[in-house]
Amino acid sequence: MLHGKAAKNVEDKASGIKTKIGLWMFLLYTIVYFGFIIVTVMKPELMGKDIGHLNLAIVYGLGLIVFALILALIYNALCNKYEKKLNTNDKTATGGVK
C-alpha cells in the first residue's frame, strides 16, 4: 500500500515564494472566471456566438476547466522548483515529498 512519511512539519524555506506564486495565479484565474460571469450577465448574446462546431459559452466553459488543469500543473512545477532550490541544503526540511 502507498503510504507517505509520518506527519512532521519542519520549516519550509520556500513557503513565502510559494504563497506569492499561489496568490498571483489565484488572481489570474479569478479574472478569467469573473470574465465568464460578466459576459453572461452583461452580454448574454455573445455566449451564443459560433466558434467552429461550438459556441462561446461551451468554449469558455470547457476552457475554464482546461485552464484550471494547466495552471495547477504549472503551479506544482514552480513549487517543486523552489522547494528543491531553497531546501536543498537543509536535510530536515520536508518541503518536498517522495
Binding site: G4, A7, N9, S15, N76, E83
Partner: peptide, 18 residues
C-alpha cells in the same frame, strides 16, 4: 504527511475532477 503532500494531492484531485 506535509504541506507539499497537501498541495500535490490537491493537484491530483483537480486533474481527475476536471
Amino acid at each position: 504527511s506535509s504541506p507539499a503532500a497537501a498541495r500535490k494531492s490537491t493537484i491530483v484531485a483537480i486533474l481527475s475532477i476536471g
